[in-house]
Design a protein around this nucleic acid. Structure first.
Lengths: 149, 149
DNA sequence: TATTGTTATACTCTATAACTATA
DNA sequence: TATAGTTATAGAGTATAACAATA
């Protein structure tokens, strides 16, 4: 289907432009992409096993071990023992971690707000109208791609 | 303006979800974000000075020196002398660099295409309708934020 | 003296391989 | 013996500070 393929190409090019723009506009505020994504997941879903987090975030188990150690050192997450299985480490976000994520979202929103405010009403409407579709798009990805390997 | 602020908040949250989804779906294929962005810029605009690239990409001069060295080692870009000014290094993309970028875009398009194809027609239409607005949004960012410092 | 770029050094983040502890 | 996690080691990618070369 040529129409669909052309749309996809435009989507890829536009997403890459948006990526680049956000990378320059939004400060990393001390959290790596994986760190922020992991904390966000812990915020939404509660405690998770370390290996499970590694699979969900698409990094190796040693990488997640180190990320969790860094988050723990920064007071943003903490390890817990699993009473059922002595091998397992459960990871959960701390109150401070929630605060940091909250402030991060506010700072990013403020930055982007200045840009979006300069768009005309039609453009803002078009973006707003696409958000539900984009949200559904993100939900299409199998959440645990590594679990099947 | 509450409407506008609410929109921005939703945009930030959705963009972050899209970011995370793309990070898991699209393989990095050996190019870092900065490397891909730099090559893309060199593709579009031709040879640029090293310091200029550092400013455009939002990294320091030493970081760009090292990135260009890695790109050169991989055969994707090359340094050239500036005949007008002996201090200046001009960087340009190679034919192999263009090939790599082309294949990268094709691979990403193919991956995303599978996802987008599963959306319903209304969602695809909404996303397509938002692309021009998103493109304009990316153009709002001053291209060389570090030049003014 | 100012500008352009490189080198030196250090830290984060990632990977693979080898290891420890529990099941 | 298999699974969960950590430690060891190496490389990419970034920063700041010090340096060399050219203007």
């Amino acid at each position: 289907m040529p129409v669909r393929a052309a749309l996809t190409h435009d989507v890829v090019v536009t997403f890459e432009r948006v990526f680049g723009m956000l990378r320059r506009v939004l400060p990393v505020d001390e959290l790596s992409l994986t760190a922020a994504s992991t904390l966000h997941r812990l915020e939404l879903t509660g405690a998770r096993r370390l290996t499970e987090l590694a699979g969900l975030e698409g990094v190796t188990q040693p990488a997640m071990t180190q990320l969790v150690s860094r988050l723990e050192r920064a007071g943003l997450a903490q390890r817990q023992a699993d009473p059922q299985d002595g091998r397992v480490v459960l990871v959960e976000i701390t109150d401070r971690g929630r605060d940091v994520m909250q402030r991060r979202r506010e700072a990013r929103t403020q930055r982007l707000n200045d840009l979006i405010a300069t768009l005309d009403a039609d453009d803002r409407t078009a973006i707003a109208a696409a958000l539900p579709a984009l949200h559904r798009l993100t939900e299409l990805v199998p959440p645990t791609p590594r679990d099947e390997q």
